[in-house]
Design a protein around this nucleic acid. Structure first.
Lengths: 127, 127
DNA sequence: GACGATGTGTTAGTTTTCTAGCAGGTTGTC
DNA sequence: GACAACCTGCTAGAAAACTAACACATCGTC
C-alpha cells in the first residue's frame, strides 16, 4: 500500500537518509545513522534494500553510490498523506497551518509570496 | 532522539493508529492494521508499548482503552520536523507549499483565511 | 448451571532483523 | 613487492520482532 511498508526500522532509517541526500555512499549513510551501527551492517542493509527494489546503486570510481528507486515526488506525497492522516484528521490545511505557525520566523519573503499566490489560486478554484 | 525511534514496524503502525484515533481498544487497532495480524499479536504489542512507556490503558467497562502517552502536539511536531528534514531540505515553506498545491481543492474558505492570516503574521515578524 | 461471545494474560516457538567478522579486490606510497 | 587505507561480498550467530495457541475471567442467554 504505502511506500514505507515492509521495511524494518533500520531499512526505513536508511531509506530516509537516501531521500534526504538524493544519493549517498554507504559511508555517508553510516555517518548519518543514529546509534552508530557497524559499517558492515549498513552495507548489508543497503544490499537488502536493493534486493527488495527500493534502492539502486551505481559504481562510481570504486565505490557504490546508492539512490532511492521510487520517485522522490511520489515518496513525498505518500509521506505527506500519511502524516496528514494520522496527525491532522485528514486536513491538509491544519497540517499547513502547523507548519507555518511553528516556523514563521524561518520563512523568507519569497516563500511567503509563493504561499500567498497558492492560496489565491485555491480561492479562485474554490468558487 | 526522535519519538519514533526504538519502535518496530508494527509498534510504529499501532502507535500511529492511536494518534489518529486518540484512544482505541485493541479490537479497533486490530481492525485498522494493514495485513491483518492476529488479534493476540496486537494485544501483545500494545502491552509491549505500554511497558516501553509509549502507551497507557484505562479499563472501561471490561475492556482496555489505549491511548498514547506522548502529547499529541509533541508527536506531531516531531513528525513534521522529520518529514520536512527528509523530504523538503529542511524548509517548512516547501512542505507547506506541497500541501497546498496538491490539495487546493479540499481547502475550505475558513482554512484559506486562517492560512492567509498566518502568512501576514509571518510577514510582520519577518521585518 | 451450561454455553457462546468477547475480553485479557502468558507462554513458547518461528521468523525476521541486525550485527560482527572474515575474505578479497583496488589504489597509492614506500 | 609489501604495506596501509579504502572499498565490496558473504556467512553465521545473536537479538528482537512477531505470532498462534492456550488458560482464565466476565457477561448475557437459554
Amino acid at each position: 500500500m504505502s511506500v514505507q511498508n515492509g521495511l524494518s526500522r533500520r531499512e526505513r532509517q536508511i531509506l530516509d537518509i537516501l531521500f534526504k541526500h538524493g544519493r549517498a555512499t554507504a559511508a555517508v549513510v553510516h555517518a548519518d545513522l543514529p546509534d552508530r551501527p557497524s559499517n558492515s551492517a549498513v552495507r548489508a542493509h543497503l544490499r537488502t534494500l536493493e534486493e527488495k527494489g527500493h534502492v539502486k546503486h551505481e559504481a562510481e570510481d570504486l565505490r557504490y553510490v546508492y539512490s532511492p528507486v521510487v520517485q522522490p515526488a511520489k515518496a513525498r506525497k505518500s509521506a505527506l498523506r500519511h502524516l496528514v492522516e494520522t496527525f491532522f484528521e485528514g486536513s491538509p490545511a491544519k497540517a499547513a497551518a502547523a507548519l507555518l505557525d511553528s516556523n514563521a520566523a524561518r520563512l523568507s519573503d519569497d516563500d511567503l509570496d509563493r504561499l500567498s499566490s497558492l492560496i489565491d489560486k485555491a480561492r479562485k478554484e474554490g468558487r
